[in-house]
Amino acid sequence: MNALRHEFDLSNATILPPRDRRAPNSRDQANLAAQWNAVHEAAAAIGVLAQLGRPEENEAVTGLPARAAANGGYEYEMVLRGVDDLAAVMQPGLRALLSLSASGQDTTSAALTLWREFHASRDAIIALAPEN
Score class of each variant (00 low, 15 high):
residue 92 P to H: 11
residue 54 R to A: 14
residue 86 L to C: 05
residue 76 Y to F: 15
residue 50 A to T: 11
residue 77 E to W: 01
residue 68 A to C: 06
residue 84 D to E: 13
residue 75 E to L: 12
residue 105 Q to N: 13
residue 96 A to H: 13
residue 110 A to R: 15
residue 90 M to K: 06
residue 96 A to Y: 03
residue 110 A to E: 14
residue 68 A to G: 07
residue 83 V to L: 08
residue 79 V to Y: 10
residue 63 G to K: 00
residue 65 P to H: 11
residue 99 S to Q: 14
residue 62 T to D: 04
residue 103 S to T: 13
residue 90 M to V: 13
residue 54 R to M: 07
residue 85 D to N: 14
residue 84 D to S: 15
residue 110 A to T: 05
residue 68 A to P: 03
residue 51 Q to Y: 00
residue 54 R to D: 14
residue 72 G to C: 05
residue 50 A to I: 06
residue 80 L to D: 12
residue 65 P to G: 09
residue 59 E to Q: 10
residue 59 E to L: 06
residue 94 L to P: 05
residue 101 S to L: 00
residue 110 A to V: 06
residue 94 L to D: 02
residue 106 D to V: 01
residue 110 A to Q: 15
residue 79 V to G: 09
residue 103 S to P: 00
residue 93 G to A: 08
residue 88 A to W: 01
residue 67 R to S: 04
residue 51 Q to V: 07
residue 70 A to E: 13
residue 71 N to A: 15
residue 60 A to Q: 11
residue 47 G to E: 09
residue 77 E to P: 01
residue 51 Q to S: 13
residue 108 T to A: 11
residue 89 V to L: 15
residue 94 L to R: 09
residue 91 Q to M: 03
residue 69 A to Y: 09
residue 87 A to I: 03
residue 90 M to R: 07
residue 65 P to R: 10
residue 89 V to F: 05
residue 52 L to D: 03
residue 106 D to N: 15
residue 68 A to R: 04
residue 87 A to R: 15
residue 65 P to M: 10
residue 55 P to G: 08
residue 72 G to M: 07
residue 109 S to M: 10
residue 64 L to G: 09
residue 54 R to S: 10
residue 94 L to W: 03
residue 82 G to Y: 04
residue 49 L to D: 03
residue 80 L to Y: 15
residue 90 M to A: 11
residue 63 G to Q: 08
residue 59 E to T: 07
residue 109 S to R: 12
residue 70 A to Y: 01
residue 86 L to E: 12
residue 89 V to W: 02
residue 61 V to T: 14
residue 103 S to D: 13
residue 104 G to F: 06
residue 86 L to S: 10
residue 85 D to M: 06
residue 50 A to P: 06
residue 77 E to S: 11
residue 103 S to C: 01
residue 59 E to I: 01
residue 76 Y to D: 02
residue 85 D to F: 07
residue 104 G to C: 04
residue 97 L to M: 04
residue 105 Q to D: 09
residue 101 S to A: 15
residue 73 G to D: 05
residue 89 V to H: 09
residue 109 S to D: 12
residue 97 L to W: 07
residue 78 M to G: 00
